[in-house]
Design a protein around this nucleic acid. Structure first.
Lengths: 133, 133
DNA sequence: CCGGATCCCCAAGGATACTG
DNA sequence: CAGTATCCTTGGGGATCCGG
């Protein structure tokens, strides 16, 4: 840390400029978008999210929810009942994001086969076919 | 909005989420989208990409280009001249992706201020203000 | 039920040097 | 000019345990 060489590189400069980067940083996580999709139908509880998003850990669910809440994409409503009940709901901003996302999912569905074929072809053409190692 | 028994139930979001995951996996990288944007204007050379995408390393540029090529999003054209010249160009599929991406960038630009404010408010409300914790 | 705290691993990605 | 190979750091994210 203190080798006398200040390691300030140019990565800081570029970080904020691009709106593309902005949206990606916000959605980059492995789970953010899945949560948004899962919550698109209406308010949803913690455990419901946990069950509906197969494979997500409790930790990541919590972390991602906090992040989305921080960005104003989710509202968190705590019902102070004896069995705790917490509901998450998309904000209008998040709903707009979800709508824009549909364009992407549509693209993915329209081209998933083509892309898969392209990958296979590329792999074959470059040796990395079906053999391991 | 959603009060009153919205029993949509969190049926496994997988059905809807998978295409989302697909596109994310494809775009998850730190640079993929930036390259697509940079190449959106037309064929572009390796070094042109390197210069236009501030902060990218040679290694990551190469790796990401290979991946995009593998997915059929980029074509790579080698001109066997004495000074090597390689041009990358978006495929129609990638152009469609780029178009869909515009919806997201538009969203980002429309709400960047709101989101920033939300973050600031959240951070203030949760102690993590401007101090380094 | 909700979720914070801790430990740990591993893949993404940066720096650098070499090649055709 | 356009890569490739190697080393090393960083932090995302899984597993697990604990607390309200």
């Amino acid at each position: 840390m203190s080798q006398g060489n200040t390691r300030v590189t140019a990565q800081v400069v570029h970080a904020q400029a691009c709106p593309v980067r902005e949206v990606l940083d916000r959605v980059a996580g492995k789970w953010s978008v899945l949560i948004i999709v899962a919550a698109a139908h209406g308010p949803i509880r913690f455990t419901e999210l946990e069950r509906s998003i197969e494979g997500i850990s409790r930790r990541m669910l919590t972390l991602t929810l906090r992040n989305l809440e921080r960005d104003g994409l989710l509202t968190r409503t705590v019902h102070a009942t004896v069995p705790p009940k917490v509901e998450y709901e998309l904000t209008p901003v998040a709903r707009e994001l979800h709508a824009s996302l549909l364009g992407l999912t549509d693209w993915a569905e329209r081209h998933r086969v083509t892309i898969a074929e392209s990958r296979a072809a590329y792999d074959v053409a470059h040796g990395r076919g079906l053999d391991a190692g």
